[in-house]
């Protein structure tokens, strides 16, 4: 049977000049956790073109609302914000129905994690994690508290900028991505060794969410906009048949 038209094919090669390399000695933990051998490039097969799918039944109604999803006897303390945007691919198409997971410290920079011993207190009403599925257009949003900066043992006096960790899937396992979102105007961004693992200044800008007054709710919550771009894909030509038939 002849194909009726082009269909989606391989994902575009990842731009490793823009992505952080594995070995970045300014971020000290990377020194022993970076492979020395080159990555082996492989042609994508079904194993790379497919990936896990999730559905709405798996999520709870408050999963994307960090202001209320761990509230015990009140609301968390801190700046109320909405983080919203679209999951897109490199062709500019929205990525629908894909899982976006988020985690962060509380307003004082303290994580709810048994390994975090920073002296700033835990907020009894704040868990610090959320998740949602993008809608048919790739749109997603979270409601949360703006996280505080956080000290860590890299240099003697290293502080992370305020940041939210984000994890995204896309329809294929080859698009799997974890990143961090930063906030417009934060002076800690320019001096952070983790930010500076990214060799491309333009790429760093793509991790900084602008204040979005148009989507803020008066007398309630400000908004920050953060689009996430996953790898795009080509259309297969007739002679390029993954099926091999």
């Amino acid at each position: 049977m002849l194909p009726t038209g082009p269909k989606p094919g391989e994902y575009y090669q990842r731009d490793r000049d823009m992505q952080p390399p594995a070995y970045t000695p300014i971020y000290k933990t990377s020194v022993l956790r970076s492979p020395k051998n080159a990555l082996l490039s492989i042609d994508q097969s079904l194993s790379e073109l497919t990936g896990p799918m999730f559905n709405h039944n798996e999520l709870g109604p408050l999963d994307n609302d960090m202001i209320s999803n761990y509230a015990q006897d009140g609301e968390p303390i801190g700046q109320r914000i909405i983080v919203h945007g679209r999951v897109l691919d490199e062709n500019g198409n929205g990525v629908p129905n894909t899982l976006v997971e988020a985690w962060q410290a509380n307003a004082g920079g303290r994580y709810r994690h048994k390994k975090d011993v920073y002296l700033a207190p835990i907020d009894p009403n704040f868990g610090g994690c959320g998740r949602c599925l993008s809608d048919d257009n790739g749109y997603y949003f979270f409601r949360t508290i703006k996280p505080g900066p956080y000290p860590w043992r890299n240099y003697v006096n290293s502080w992370r900028p305020a940041h939210i960790h984000l994890s995204v899937f896309g329809p294929s396992f080859s698009q799997r991505l974890i990143t961090q979102m930063y906030f417009e105007g934060d002076p800690l961004i320019d001096i952070c060794p983790i930010v500076k693992t990214i060799p491309d200044a333009e790429a760093i800008k793509r991790l900084i969410a602008p204040l979005d007054m148009n989507n803020s709710i008066p007398m309630d919550t400000r908004a920050y906009k953060f689009d996430i771009v996953l790898r795009g894909r080509r259309s297969t030509l007739f002679e390029n048949r993954l099926e091999g038939n």
Binding site: R14, D15, M18, Q19, P20, Y27, S30, L88, D89, E90, N91, G92, W103, Y111, H113, K115, D116, H165, S167, L177, I178, T179, Q180, I194, V195, T197, I198, D200, A203, I204, R206, L207, I228, V229, L230, R231, G232
Partner: peptide, 12 residues
């Protein structure tokens, strides 16, 4: 568009 840069998942 360009892919969003990756960052470490961190200890938490």
């Amino acid at each position: 568009l360009k892919e969003t840069p990756s960052q470490t998942a961190g200890p938490y």
